[in-house]
Design a binder for these strands. Structure first.
Lengths: 203, 203
DNA sequence: GTCTATAGCCAGATAGAC
DNA sequence: GTCTATCTGGCTATAGAC
């Protein structure tokens, strides 16, 4: 029974780099620490990825390519707006529970280097909002949902699902709960978020 | 007509440190850059704040102390839930437009060092959620609003107001707008967010 | 209080043996 | 491909003159 990941040196490095970069960011990460985690030495990092910047970019692209299909669930899927909202809220929260550092990492590094998003757009799997806009406008005309701007609705859906993971330590402090209680609250949000949104837009 | 800020060396340093730390984070900030921005030399930073860590903590506490009263608007104010939501959404968005890097900075550094929140709790102005919880439960019993968990509602309010600022570059990429259009969307949210929430909880 | 000069360390990157 | 040893630069912090 072999490992699900290749254990070539190159992929060992990438896995180690992911875990260090995603928790410490580009500036906080140390090449030595990545090498230690991968069980090899610093020279190998440069042999395979040339320098820190390129290793970082490999990790970033990889992270973004995991996130993009999640967003496409809500943007390009064929179900109704209500179904999309229910599916996305549940699926996204499940997904992030398994990759807790991912959205924060992506958002953070985009803040430090906004031009990076352009490089991501070159990928043809980059999420596109047009279909979602048309669908919302159609359902509004249709009378299936209340009058609402599609862009604002999209931002709301994203905010409600993503923010609690990004601001976890702040929220835990404010609402005075420990890790176990926070986990329960997140679990509840798999349905609570969708209900909250749908309550707001249904007629 | 004198400046609103003291222009003592000490406060010049703090202002410069704010702007550098809030955009680059602890790890990305350089003492030299802070000194340049303050128009003095590196040695002075150490003379007044001893080391980088202590200078950083001064900036962080200062940032948190600006954010806390904003949160207390929704937690400890005496108006109805509906009024609170309208006031907070409008006021908070106005506030952050003037301090755009602040929430991201606080959330980010708390992620890297979650124990920091404990130090913030020592301050007696630290926001407390109890009153808000009682009020929501009361208004639910009362029949003024729909059945909803107070903690989840609080997280929703925070998410909808804060997230768009934190994820600005990502959102701008996804919805394909430039800076001007994004600003207009944010301006619209001063009322749109409150309407969205209230639609969801009103009977 | 403010400056220049520099100590001392640590990180990224490379050279070169195997 | 993989390693050890080392270079080089940059960064925090301090010493010490004024």
């Amino acid at each position: 029974m072999k490992n699900k990941k290749n254990d070539t040196t190159e992929s060992l490095i990438l896995e180690a780099a992911k875990s260090i970069f995603q928790t410490k960011g580009m500036d906080g990460a140390r090449m030595q620490e990545i090498a230690d985690k991968a069980g090899i030495n610093k020279a190998m990092l440069h042999y395979y990825y040339r320098n820190k910047q390129l290793l970082f970019e490999a990790v970033f692209k990889n992270a973004f390519s995991l996130l993009a299909p999640q967003l496409n669930t809500i943007l390009n899927d064929d179900s109704s707006i209500e179904e999309k909202i229910r599916n996305f809220s549940s699926n996204y929260i499940t997904f992030i529970t398994e990759h807790p550092y991912l959205p924060n990492f992506v958002i953070q590094e985009l803040n430090k280097n906004p031009a990076f998003i352009l490089k991501m757009k070159e990928n043809k799997a980059f999420p596109n909002i047009e279909k979602f806009k048309k669908q919302v406008d159609f359902e509004v005309q249709n009378g299936s949902i209340k009058q609402i701007d599609a862009t604002q609705l999209f931002i709301n859906i994203l905010s409600l699902n993503v923010f609690p993971f990004i601001a976890k330590p702040l929220i835990m402090g404010l609402i005075e709960v420990d890790d176990v209680a926070f986990k329960a609250i997140i679990e509840e949000r798999k349905t609570a978020v969708a209900n909250f949104i749908i309550n707001s837009i249904k007629l």
